[in-house]
């Protein structure tokens, strides 16, 4: 699904140059559950944004389904984003003026889904994350864990091919963290989506078969379960590609 080659991202701030990612090569298979781990500020989120087509590389390529996201015009990239990627953020990033259901519906707006269908799909997604009865509540009326579940419902309502989660448990207590990890894992297992979760939490990182470790912009791979040659990367999906 993804092929990252010689991927670098450099930020310039005045005269200073900050290398967030340096010559990263990585392949992610369709249906794989990958965690990305590393200290704060070492390039994890940058990698996630590049995978989601929200940022462009300074050099190298992000190939998604054979298309280079870095070279794609913005108008097409918007479409690719709208159809293929579901984002989950550490701070939930829900619209405070919209109800849980409306927040979930917002993800269907760019797909020009009709209002009636939007409503039913949003309610179905909220049911899947266990928040059907909280559909009419506004974000400030929900706990952190509930808000993150709404955010997950918003990410999966459009049935994307990839869920990209940036520290989804970063702001949660232990109980809520366990619930969210279980929910993401369950989605991966049930739906067979490709899931990439950025975390600095080793416990969370080890839930995935593979973890990409990022340190000062360089990437190495860690197998949390021994790779079994012919075994699928996910629940009945393709094998993970090796990092170079």
């Amino acid at each position: 699904m993804y092929q990252l080659t010689q991927l670098s991202r450099v930020f310039t701030k005045g005269r200073a140059r900050i290398t967030a990612l340096k010559d990263v090569d990585l392949a992610i298979a369709d249906g794989e559950f990958l965690t990305v781990q590393g200290p704060t500020g070492h390039g994890k989120t940058t990698l996630l944004l590049l995978l989601g087509g929200l940022d462009r590389p300074s050099s190298g390529h992000v190939i998604f389904d054979g298309q280079d996201l870095g070279a794609m015009p913005e108008s097409r990239l918007v479409d690719v984003r709208a159809r293929n990627f579901g984002f989950v953020f550490q701070n939930y990033n829900l619209m405070p003026t919209l109800t849980a259901q409306e927040n979930v519906e917002a993800a269907l707006v760019p797909l020009r889904t009709r209002a009636e269908e939007r409503r039913s799909r949003a309610l179905a997604a909220l049911t899947e994350v266990g928040l059907r009865e909280r559909a009419g509540h506004f974000p400030p009326e929900l706990s952190g864990g509930e808000q993150q579940r709404v955010a997950i419902a918003r990410a999966l309502v459009k049935e994307p091919r990839v869920i990209l989660a940036d520290e989804p448990t970063g702001n949660l207590d232990e109980v809520a963290r366990g619930e969210i990890v279980a929910l993401v894992e369950g989605l991966w297992q049930r739906r067979g989506m490709t899931v990439v979760v950025v975390t600095h939490d080793t416990q969370v990182a080890r839930r995935a078969p593979r973890t990409a470790l990022i340190d000062h912009g360089a990437l190495t791979l860690r197998y949390n379960r021994p790779p079994t040659g012919s075994a699928p990367a996910g629940p009945g999906r393709s094998r993970p590609a090796e990092a170079s």
Partner: peptide
């Protein structure tokens, strides 16, 4: 800013 960034991330076009 973050609200609009999120909307762009979930696929909203700039013109919207």
């Amino acid at each position: 800013v973050r609200e609009f960034g999120t909307l762009k991330a979930i696929g909203w076009r700039t013109r919207r």
